[in-house]
Design a binder for these strands. Structure first.
Lengths: 200, 200
DNA sequence: TTGGATAATGAACTTCGTGTTGATTTTCTT
DNA sequence: AAGAAAATCAACACGAAGTTCATTATCCAA
């Protein structure tokens, strides 16, 4: 938690510079086109210093992903599934917090979920709440198999990421709340959301 | 379509070898860790020959993606949206064909959608049916805004990819038909799929 | 404030993949 | 069978990767 306070200021400075520079370069080009050399020039850090901290550019990137992942996990861990949350009206707060975090960190999201994104991060994010959700669903409803619950979870989380990606690539016009509401409606109602008059 | 018939046999052979070798290497390591050198050794093709065909490893990969993309587009283009397809029972055939194609090419899917996947392919796949679906939805239902339809489409397609990814990473136990049915249920019904007795 | 510790720098060096070239050999097509 | 075209082989310059070590700058605790 606060081991960071005991890290030498020089180390903190160097790592911060490298992280910021990588983010900057990634907004312009793909990760695999970024060399250690140019990263260090951008950060004005000696190349030898880089190797004292990271194995290569991908190593640095993975560590950055981990940090975001931990923060988002923390946000989500405040929520636990109750029967209420599975019925009509109580899912919003969880979605809202998640989307608010992501929307608030959109520059990072752009890198992590955008055109040059790496897959591992998405997979990890996806699995944050998997076991909790699936277990709760199976316990609360006797009509659903564990297998179907797993698939439904995969479908849902990927769908939410899809919403975020569309949002990112279309000018980020909506607020976190709007995104959360859209996600909630899609998940709760499915395609009937499209219908003028709900059938059956 | 059949320009391939006019391509020199040596060229076809070389390209096939390189494609297969790249696929093989990608099952073991990430794209950015694969060098032209090792790819050519794997394929037993001269390095100079590689450069006569492709700019670099990413160029080859992009071309492979394009081929799959075109094939899948062809599969999907057989379907057009009618009102029937948006109601309860008629979506399955389209999903079924898509999933059958993807399941049938699971080795490729594993590379394209799996842990080392590149984002561009997924984005392209996602957009195959976007305008067609969104336009149809907006025309058929006066209650949905274009914006919401776009988001619903993003949500749905990403969700389906999520289903496929879960399937890939869990032993590929289900058939294409089962996957298509799951997808259809999730999209049509949303979370009520979990409920023992449908509310309202 | 100072002194020991530690991190960053700069320069040099080897290694390795890249991308290209030109001569030679193999394979295809008709 | 012959000409065309592709693949091979060897060689090359180039640049980034990764490491080493002596030197300098910075930190932090006594």
């Amino acid at each position: 938690m606060n081991e960071n306070l005991y890290v030498d200021r020089r180390i903190r400075k160097t790592r911060k510079l490298l992280r910021e520079s990588l983010l900057k370069l990634m907004s312009k080009k793909k990760l695999h086109d970024i060399t250690v050399k140019e990263l260090c020039e951008e950060a004005d850090v000696n190349r030898g210093t880089f190797y004292a901290h990271y194995r290569d550019v991908y190593d640095l990137f993975a560590i950055m992903e981990d940090e975001i992942f931990d923060e988002l996990s923390l946000v989500l861990s405040n929520y636990y599934l109750t029967e209420d949350m599975l019925t009509q009206k109580k899912q919003l707060p969880c979605f809202l917090e998640a989307f608010e975090y992501l929307v608030g960190n959109y520059a990072l999201c752009d890198v992590l979920l955008g055109i040059n994104r790496d897959q591992i991060f998405i997979d990890k994010i996806s699995d944050v709440g998997r076991s909790r959700c699936v277990t709760a669903w199976v316990q609360l409803y006797n009509t659903i198999s564990r297998r179907d619950a797993e698939y439904f979870y995969s479908f849902t989380v990927s769908g939410c990421i899809g919403i975020l990606q569309y949002w990112l690539s279309n000018g980020r016009k909506e607020s976190a709340k709007e995104l959360a509401q859209l996600a909630e409606r899609f998940i709760l109602q499915g395609i009937p959301i499209l219908r003028p008059s709900p059938k059956r």
